[in-house]
Simulated assay, not measured.
Amino acid sequence: MSLSPKLPDWMEEVGPDLYCIDCDYVQPRLACVYLMINDAGRAAFLETNTSRAVSRFLEALKVLGYSTDDVDWIIPTHVHLDHAGGAGALLRECSRATVLAHPRAAKHLINPDRLIQSSIQVYGQETFEKLYGEIVPCPESRVRIMADGESLHWGNRTLEFLYTRGHANHHFCIYEKTSGVFTGDSFGIAYPDLQSGGPFLFASSTPTDFDPPAAHESLDRIRNTGTGSVFLTHFGRLDSLEEAGRQLHESLQFLTGLYDDARARFKSAEDKAAPELKQSLEEEVRTRILDSWVDQLLSRGFPDASAIQERLGMDAALNAGGIVFAAQRSLKKG
C-alpha cells in the first residue's frame, strides 16, 4: 500500500489518515464526505451525501488501497438528504459496516418513506431524482443509536457524539480529538470559493427545525471542546475558529431578527395560513438574506454582486424557507 497515493482532484488529505471527498452535489465543492482511517487500517465514512456519490466513495477507498470490507462505520450527522441520502446505498456496498445515528434520525434511515415524500413535495419528482437518486432503507439490525456524550473507541481514535440542536433536532456532531469536530450543519457553511477575502461563514436555517437559541448553544458546545479544527460538510477543514464563531453568532442574530419580523407579520395577518402570505414572506426574507451576503462579500473585495447572487441564491431560498416555516409553526403552537 502506497504511503502517499496520488489523489484525484476531488479528494484531499485534510489530516493524518483523513480525507475530504467532494461529492459534486449540485456543483463542485458544495458538499463533502470525510473518509477516516484508523491505525488498524479500518475505515469510517462521516456523512454520506446521496446515492449518486457512492461510486466516488468506493473509488476513494480503492485509491487508498482499501476495500468495502474495511469499512466499519457510516455516520451521517443528520437525515437531511444531502447528508444521509446515500447511507443505505453505501451500507449495501459495505457488508461489514454499521450506521451510527442519532435516535431521532435512526427511524428515518430505517424507513425513509416520510423523507422521500416530503422532499418530493418540495422539489417535484424529477428534481428529487436528479438531486438524490435512490434512497435505500438501512436494515434496522445494522443501525446503532449513539447517545449524547457517548464515546466509541476505535483503534487509535475515539469518536465522541455531541447532540447539537438548532439546525435539526436529530443532529449530532462527532468529536475526534486527534482531528477535530465534524460539524454537519451545526457550525455553518463556508464555501471555499468565497474565502479569498478572509473567512466568510453563515448559519443554516433550512426547514424544518430552525431554533436560534439552540443553534447558539450548539456553536458554543463545539467551541468548548477545545478543538483547533472543525470539518464542515459545506465545505472542508476550518481552523480560524474564533473568527468563525463570531461570524456565526452574528449570522444567527441576523436570522433571528428575520424570524421575529416574519412571526409578527403572521400574527397580524387575518388569514395566517394564506399561501400567498407565506410565499411573499419567503421572497422578502430571501432578498434580505441575499442582500446581506452580497454586502459582506463586496466589502471583502468580491467585484460582482450578480455572481454572488447566483452563487448563493439556493442557500438564501433554503434559509428563508426555514425561517418562515419556523415563524408560522410557532404561532400554531401558541
Score class of each variant (00 low, 15 high):
Thr225Glu: 05
Arg288Ile: 01
Arg263Gly: 04
Arg288Val: 07
Leu290Thr: 01
Thr225Lys: 07
Gln253Phe: 03
Gly301His: 08
Ala262Val: 03
Glu276Gly: 00
Gly322Phe: 01
Asp260Leu: 14
Thr227Ile: 10
Gly245Phe: 08
Ile308Arg: 00
Glu282Lys: 08
Leu248His: 02
Thr206Gly: 00
Tyr259Glu: 05
Ala273Cys: 10
Asp271His: 08
Lys272Ile: 14
Gln247Met: 14
Ile222Glu: 04
Asp295Phe: 09
Phe266Arg: 04
Leu298Lys: 04
Glu276Asn: 09
His234Ile: 04
Asp239Leu: 10
Arg223Gln: 13
Glu284Leu: 13
Thr287Gln: 13
Leu277Tyr: 04
Asp271Cys: 12
Gly301Asp: 11
Gln296Trp: 01
Arg263Phe: 04
His234Lys: 13
Glu276Trp: 12
Glu250Ser: 12
Leu252Thr: 00
Asp239Gln: 14
Gly321Lys: 00
Glu282Val: 07
Ser251Phe: 02
Asp315Gly: 01
Glu283Met: 12
Tyr259Pro: 03
Gln296Cys: 10
Phe235Arg: 00
Ala305Pro: 05
Lys278Cys: 07
Ala307Glu: 12
Leu258Pro: 04
Leu238Asp: 04
Thr256Phe: 09
Leu298Gly: 02
Phe210Ser: 03
Glu250Pro: 04
Pro207Phe: 03
Ala317Arg: 07
Gly236Lys: 05
Asp315Cys: 05
Ser292Thr: 11
Leu255Met: 15
Leu232Ile: 08
Gln253Thr: 15
Ala244Glu: 02
Arg246Ala: 11
Lys278Asn: 11
Ala317Met: 11
Leu312Ile: 03
Thr208Leu: 06
Leu232Phe: 05
Glu217His: 08
Arg263Val: 08
Ser229Pro: 04
Ser229Phe: 11
Ser280Asp: 14
Tyr259Phe: 15
Arg288Gln: 14
Asp304Pro: 09
Ala316Asn: 02
Thr208Phe: 06
Ala274Ser: 14
Ser240Gln: 15
Phe210Leu: 05
Leu232Gly: 01
Gly245Ser: 15
Asp239Val: 13
Ile289Thr: 03
Leu290Gly: 03
Thr233Tyr: 03
Asp291Tyr: 05
Asp271Arg: 13
Gln296Leu: 13
Gln279Phe: 07
Phe302His: 08
Glu310Val: 13
Asp291His: 09
Ser205Leu: 01
Thr287Leu: 13
Arg286Leu: 11
Glu217Lys: 06
Gln279Met: 10
Arg288Glu: 09
Leu232Thr: 03
Ser268Arg: 15
Leu252Lys: 01
Gly257Lys: 09
Ala307Phe: 12
Asp260Tyr: 03
Gln253Trp: 00
Asp291Val: 07
Ala320Phe: 03
Ala273Lys: 11
Asp260Thr: 15
Ser251Pro: 06
Val285Ser: 03
Asn319Glu: 02
Glu310Trp: 00
Gly322Arg: 02
Lys278Leu: 09
Phe302Val: 12
Ala264Glu: 15
Ser205Arg: 00
Pro212Trp: 03
Arg265Gln: 14
Pro213Cys: 06
Gln296Lys: 14
Pro213His: 06
Ile323Pro: 01
Ala269Asn: 06
Pro207Lys: 03
Asp304Gln: 12
Arg263Leu: 09
Ala274Asn: 11
Leu252Phe: 03
Asp239Thr: 15
Arg263Glu: 12
Glu242Asn: 13
Ser268Val: 10
His216Trp: 11
Gln247Pro: 05
Asn319Lys: 02
Arg265Pro: 01
